[in-house]
Design a protein around this nucleic acid. Sequence first.
DNA 1: TATGAATGAGTTTTCATTCAT
DNA 2: CATGAATGAAAACTCATTCAT
Lengths: 181, 181, 181, 181
Amino acid sequence: MNKRDNILKAALKLFVEQGEQATSMKWIAKEAKCGIGTMYNYFESKEELINVLYLENKTKLFTYILETHDTSVSVKQQFVAIWLKFIDHAISNPLETRFLQLFSHSPKISKQVTEEVNELIYPLFEVYEKGKKEGIIKNLDTLHLVIFTNGAITSSVSYNPNISNQNKNDLVLLAWDAIKS
Amino acid sequence: MNKRDNILKAALKLFVEQGEQATSMKWIAKEAKCGIGTMYNYFESKEELINVLYLENKTKLFTYILETHDTSVSVKQQFVAIWLKFIDHAISNPLETRFLQLFSHSPKISKQVTEEVNELIYPLFEVYEKGKKEGIIKNLDTLHLVIFTNGAITSSVSYNPNISNQNKNDLVLLAWDAIKS
Amino acid sequence: MNKRDNILKAALKLFVEQGEQATSMKWIAKEAKCGIGTMYNYFESKEELINVLYLENKTKLFTYILETHDTSVSVKQQFVAIWLKFIDHAISNPLETRFLQLFSHSPKISKQVTEEVNELIYPLFEVYEKGKKEGIIKNLDTLHLVIFTNGAITSSVSYNPNISNQNKNDLVLLAWDAIKS
Amino acid sequence: MNKRDNILKAALKLFVEQGEQATSMKWIAKEAKCGIGTMYNYFESKEELINVLYLENKTKLFTYILETHDTSVSVKQQFVAIWLKFIDHAISNPLETRFLQLFSHSPKISKQVTEEVNELIYPLFEVYEKGKKEGIIKNLDTLHLVIFTNGAITSSVSYNPNISNQNKNDLVLLAWDAIKS
DNA sequence: TATGAATGAGTTTTCATTCAT
DNA sequence: CATGAATGAAAACTCATTCAT
């Protein structure tokens, strides 16, 4: 594993375990087994390190969710598949998931990164839009619907990170019942 | 207005606008128009200030939500009334609402305060339980249902603080559709 | 007991038990059961309080030592009597003794007080001077002899505050053997 | 000279000249011509700085005193040699001597350091013990005798730091006369 | 005279960042 | 590229002193 990845991995672990504020650059360097100066060869500042971590993990999350995305099946099937993958990712990557939650509204995340991240959600939009056109999803503002679903599921998974397969399905169907017309 | 309230008000404003980490005690004192030492006459530490702010505002929120709570009407009516009041409170008190979200999982909030806050939600539980007994709410774990609803509505309101009356109703009904059987 | 004495007593106790630095004026006021402001009616500052405490206790010590001082007996008898009373005072007043030691070279004690205190030792000087004239005490600088004796005895008593009567006599005779010719 | 020594030297000077309490870390850094942070690379805290200063200087003192210690000569010769070296050291190192006195009973000195320091005095003990066995030193508690001698000589030297060679001998003989049987 | 809330200068300590090696 | 000693601005917090009541 290369140095850059070591640093990112160390920072992720320490930020989640102890909070970003309580994690000094010195400590990250120690955990990453490199010098402090080395970190500044890869990241301009602590803030950049946080932003890179946020952007890369958010991108990984959506890449995973959408890599098997199949627009040919029914809207409900697409909806269920996407959100189940979202939950699976959260369960398999607890550190990353916790990190993304902790920093999702942090003032440390730059506007630039926030905008890049917002674009990732676009394919998800299209599922809702298609459902609305087909009349099987309520005719409300799409953004509102997505936010509603995301808030509900994220909140549920973070309170219950050891969710069972049965509960995963229940959870996604709960969300579906909310938005279906 | 007394000094203690000035300090709480100043801290709330600055914590939300700039983040807690970026807000020094010196700055809060300046905003509250008092000396730094004065703050330490009212609050032992920055951490206590945060905890008091959290407990008092969470308590105000639930007091407001539940002050007109009427257990004699139907479960759906109770559900709608409670969450509408929740949304109203969020709209009328954006700073307080944002603060409560920001610190809801913060390590700065003490176990003691977390426990006190958890008890406030009890009446809300009973509405869901009653609905489950009557067979009109899905027979899933009550805590999960509450978390689902709360996550969905909180998320929606915080992304759209200027929500219209029509949308408020739509939002609550979206949540209702999710959990109704 | 009047307020002034209460304050002095409280300060003495706390200064010795916890150190002056660790003892705040607030704490002294609490121990003396009066308001902080009240202390400033009796003593201009913390420094003055320390100086008054030092001067008064040093004066009490020498008053006690010298109140039965009898210049008609032999020099050796005078020497022994004085230093035995010194030791007795130290044993009976451990807090006061400790305080006087702690502050004997403190930068907090003003020049003015230091000078006043130095004069108290004058009668003791005369005993040594008389002994030198009689040829029974070594013909060295009197101040040096007094400092030698005082250093030796003070040091001994402070390391062994529960000294027995036998040891008290041994100690004084040790000092006598040093200076006798 | 290296940075660590610069810091120790600066701290020693300022602690003695103005008192520890009146000497801020900022001031020590300025005197040592380094940044404040640098001090914390070498010493964990102000307290540690004090303790290191105390232990190192006490050790230097005893190393100097005992480096020429010769147990083959007479007890009196050993006694005189040791205390003369003690006085020499005090005269040559007035700052260090004053510092050791100021902190000898300070609550800032840790138990750990106190214990380490107490062991240094052991060879001195043996001189007294040997004298007692030979019947040329009074048969009193050895610790008491050592404390008596130390208190007397330390006190004398600190009041008169410009002591002449003649006076040095007189002083040591004064102490010898006290304890000899 | 007695009080204690209010004050802010000053303290120790931390830590992101730099730069000489 | 890699390193970590050096730095000092800034943080949380303390406490002697003041002054309105």
